[in-house]
Write a protein that binds this DNA or RNA. Sequence first.
DNA 1: AACTCGGGGCA
DNA 2: TGCCCAGAGTT
Length: 348
Amino acid sequence: MTPLAEPLLAWFDRHGRHDLPWQHPRSAYRVWLSEIMLQQTRVETVIDYFQRFVTQLPTLADLARADEDEVLALWSGLGYYRRARFLHRAALQCMREHDGELPRDFDALAALPGIGRSTAGAILAQAHGLRFPILDGNVKRVLTRLHGIHGHPGQRVVEKQLWTLAEQHTPHERLADYTQAIMDLGATLCTRSRPRCDDCPLQSRCVAHAEDLTDALPTPKPSRAIPTRHTLMLLLRDHERRVLLQRRGPEGVWSGLWSLPEAENETDALQKAKRLAEVDDAQTLTAFIHVFSHYRLEIRPLLFEAATAAKRIADNDDLRWCDPTQIQTLGLPAPVRKLLNDTWESDA
DNA sequence: AACTCGGGGCA
DNA sequence: TGCCCAGAGTT
């Protein structure tokens, strides 16, 4: 018995889940089916689907005989339908290559479609009491907190470390119960938000609890690359070095702030500029990127010199010719303010 | 070893 | 809408 397994199993005997449908009877077929259904899917969602499935197809041979359509119908609403096709194909493969049974050999089991390292371990431990570790979302959460491991568990180095720890904690007895116990701990106490540390049998050993890191661990998945949008900003300047500012609408980013008129492309830009002032062609300034929380904005400024001081349109609530002093008193987006400051500096 | 796939459920 | 959930397969 490992130092982790002892208190964990004692807790499991009193507070673990002992009435899940795939635990009675805990046959290899039923454990396999439950493990596949539980990939990326919550227990509460799976229970009804599991009952219906095993009622309809009670054995591996029944599954293998069924049409793929029938299997998919039983899966309907559960999502991630590739799992159902893998399940069916694996059953056929077991009939052909493994005498109609799920293999007890780890490599043969993990070679079946839809069964990876963790699922193979879960099946062998729960159905046959063999000593193999598992590493699902629950175990990752428990172990990152218990050992205070930073970094997203999806990262290779982190995951490798977690597998090593999972293997070290796995006891040599009561494998089925231990495997269920560590998942139950993650599912009922060591939850992502508001973990019930006061009831946890591992609290005294837990790094995250001692260092108040339970909210920070496991490290969340890094938000994926944000998209880049593009815009042209019209910098219209008259002979007195004033710049035309436009108030932004009530919707979207920078709502209500004073900014520069914008355009989607060169044609659009020239058209808009000519409506606003007497201009000729534009001078392209250096493009730059402004980063928001949810996207990057590439800003390409176009400088238009007004041919005369004459204005096509008068100042109003939403358009205003401003000199550098006035601009300091208005609310401008940071990148626009910087653009204007840089432009004046380089010209001065 | 990094990337893609995948759908329901919930904040 | 973004993120999480008893991960696996592909390149």
